[in-house]
Design a protein around this nucleic acid. Structure first.
Lengths: 253, 253
DNA sequence: AAATCAAAGTGTATTATAGACACAATTGTA
DNA sequence: TACAATTGTGTCTATAATACACTTTGATTT
């Protein structure tokens, strides 16, 4: 919780710099040790968590704002970002900022305005991130997707919608370049798909299909040092990968 | 073009009732005589056209605003509506309201604010609509999708994005219930698909596939009176149709 | 050094789906 | 009654999806 001085300064600054009524919330997906992770922030002095988010500078393009916000939270630039939905229920933030009602008049409090929030989801390489809290958070950290804490506001809905969108996306776009390290094995990539989809896939069919997309390059050297047969290393063929991103996988009609 | 009085009254009313910086634009698709149609408004005293749109009341849910706007333009209630993207380039409306610069100071002019516009697309039964202009338009009418006039602002981009989304949608959702009359023949439905996709489809394969979705009911009576063999009439099986809408057609993974 | 274990590599047979294609039936008109 | 236009329907083929089992490898254990 902020002090009265901090809050008032923040609100004055926000009114001056940010576009009213618009916010951005980001669902940042990572993948680590076979688990799907989401980047969350923990509210100071509370047990609650929320999604990385922020506001739009008055003359800033939306995508740029989302990038800026994520750079602040993760240290990463050029993140894979995708706008997926606007959440605008008039009551979506009701009562969530009651705690400040004795410090500042509601009409002065930036946070009691109505906000439509633009949802972005991001896919990032877990190992490359340096999570950093914003000024309302005690900490910023990765949480397991299947063991989530309670989320503030409508952030649980936003997260679910992002996940649904990601799963749909899997059907007509390649995925993984932004979530995997440079080199990876086929079983590791399969684990990513299994984790996102939350179901087991057949090893052989997965490999055949994935190779059929022609977005993978197999390295000459297998990965040594594991306790078993050395698996081949793959990397994404960026050219074909990007082509697949824009063209999609299956014609349908 | 509005008079100075009209403009000032509009701006004062807008500031009082609407949420700042947010607008809604709708791409309304219809289908008639084998042609894809889009509902457009023609600016008074100019040759330019724009998409049906409007603003969000301060306490109104977004979807409700989109419905309200479309009811005003088409007379229809309960329209199939889908949010598909937010357009928020800071310069998207630049210079488009220069014509009013001598009437009102820019800071007083509602229209020179920055707006993020939430794009919705709608599918409606062409024959049921009663197009009605808004107060900035000389007329509201259906235009052929493949013979469009020049559009104001970034409305050409919005329209194109809507169309792309619709085409994608075709791959995993049924479509047609909102675009076709209650009863229709298989060739008519095929024409709809061909028009949306802008390509020819095979009659026999189309029929087989479409019937495979189990969303159609064949009527006992064929349509008589045509100059040739009487085609069967079909209607959508609403229960299965809605199930297909939520579940999607093909598993993918 | 040999046996063992766990994970990875690979292939084939079957089934379902998509695509190409041709002929017969119906209706109004010439 | 022949014709033209349109609709209805079936089959063959190619491709893609699925199910399924054995072999290979490398480290670890005995």
């Amino acid at each position: 919780m902020l002090t009265e001085k901090e809050l008032k300064e923040y609100c004055a600054g926000a009114r001056e710099n940010y576009l009213a009524h618009i916010s951005i919330d980001c669902v940042v997906f990572g993948f680590h040790e076979g688990l799907m992770k989401v980047l969350l922030l923990e509210v100071k002095d509370e047990g609650e968590w929320y999604l990385p988010g922020g506001f739009l500078l008055k003359k800033e393009p939306i995508e740029m704002a989302a990038n800026r916000i994520l750079k602040e939270r993760t240290g990463l630039d050029e993140i894979f970002l995708q706008q997926f939905h606007v959440f605008g229920d008039p009551d979506r933030s009701k009562q969530h900022f009651d705690m400040y009602k004795d410090m500042i008049a509601p009409e002065e409090n930036w946070f009691t305005n109505r906000f439509l929030t633009i949802g972005y989801y991001a896919l990032v390489d877990f190992c490359e991130t340096n999570p950093a809290p914003d000024q309302f958070a005690a900490k910023c950290s990765w949480r397991d997707l299947n063991d989530l804490p309670e989320l503030k506001l409508d952030h649980a809905l936003i997260l679910k919608t992002a996940l649904d969108t990601l799963r749909l996306q899997l059907n007509y776009q390649p995925i993984g370049y932004n979530l995997m390290p440079k080199e990876f094995t086929m079983p590791e990539l399969q684990k990513l798909y299994e984790t996102i989809l939350d179901k087991k896939l057949d090893r052989r069919n997965f490999q055949r299909r994935m190779l059929g997309f022609s977005i993978l390059t197999r390295s000459d050297q297998p990965r040594k040092g594991g306790a078993h047969k050395a698996p081949y290393l793959y990397s994404f063929d960026l050219e074909n990968y990007k082509a697949a991103l824009t063209e999609g996988f299956k014609g349908g009609w």
